[in-house]
Design a protein around this nucleic acid. Structure first.
Lengths: 185, 185
DNA sequence: TATTGTTATACTCTATAACTATA
DNA sequence: TATAGTTATAGAGTATAACAATA
């Protein structure tokens, strides 16, 4: 307890923080994906809508939103734009008049195919420090975690650890002004 | 070319899309981390600032911002709030009067330690489908990719694939209104 | 002239609720 | 009463530029 290590209770480096890793990698991916899909309505999100909607039998908007992990209200705007550009069409569900089935047009399928090839190049560059074996491992592990996280009810599973550590509701902190004074600038 | 597979040029499932995996996992992490760190100024971001600033010798704001991958202007507000709550202090850099060194108070180090334990629980639950060996593999691979992405100049490296696929600038699409008409609602 | 930090502005994204129409 | 989809609003997050002080 008297050695130099004991008097230096430093936290682990930030590079061991899973949130930091995920944030850095996700933002790096988004930067490049935004570039690739910038001329597509909704950018990378619009591409994901195309992929999620390209199924047989066709799905309604709620199913697409759930698979992508986005809100229904957001998907409405995304599909508005995609439909306006002729990439998808909404058609009434024959068995439920509340529901609208989303299907890709030929142009939409072609756009998705081309973006897919471009995004494959982005992924290759993002993972360029890994061997091809490691790339496969990372994709498998991430896919497993993502599918589990998507299936679980997040407020039941993930937040149990949170509730054990804090009794406060998940409210956001507001941004404040700094007090002028002894700053150098 | 006439078989049933050839006439069904469906894209890969969305679960094979790296952007989908990263988004789902990152959002799931953020939901739980927001909960854990909600009573900390800046939430999970504030926690990362504490970890990044807890170094010897102390660093200035620019170094912290670069390591976290966030903008200097954002960090100003974060540190304002952390300092107001007595978790960090800014002191003048003795060798550069423009620069301000960020150091943790005892309260800040204690807050970081407690959050770190809570966030460890969040990570455990997020990765609960993986074995402990797989957890280690995923962390190692992600860390490798994150460190490489952080070191690379993103506009040089990651966007080369983008520029090869599109000639358009990375502008965002605007949100539009849908034309009323044949909708069911 | 370049860099550190601060501040202000505008823009994007997200969360929430209210509403219509169907079930 | 519950659900699918739409719309509007407010809040949080982000990007950008301008500025002062210093190198």
């Amino acid at each position: 307890m008297t050695g130099p290590q004991a008097s230096d209770p430093r936290t682990d480096p930030i590079t061991d923080d899973l949130g930091w890793m995920l944030g850095v990698v996700f933002r790096a991916y988004l930067r490049a994906a935004d570039h690739v899909a910038s001329d597509l309505p909704g950018g990378p999100r619009g591409y994901q809508v195309l992929v999620a909607a390209d199924r047989e039998p066709a799905r309604n908007q709620g199913a697409v939103a759930e698979e992508l992990g986005i809100d229904r209200t957001v998907l409405t705007y995304l599909i508005d734009d995609l439909e306006r550009d002729g990439l998808v069409v909404r058609r009434p569900d024959p068995v439920d008049r509340r529901s609208r089935l989303v299907t890709l047009t030929d142009a939409g399928r072609d756009a998705a195919r081309r973006r897919r090839e471009a995004l494959a190049g982005v992924e290759t560059r993002l993972l360029h420090t890994l061997t091809s074996t490691q790339c496969g491992e990372l994709r498998d592990l991430l896919k497993q975690v993502a599918c589990a996280a998507q299936a679980d009810d997040p407020l039941v599973d993930l937040c149990q650890a949170a509730e054990a550590a804090t009794d406060e509701p998940p409210t956001r902190r507001r941004r404040r002004r700094a007090t002028p004074g002894d700053r150098p600038g």
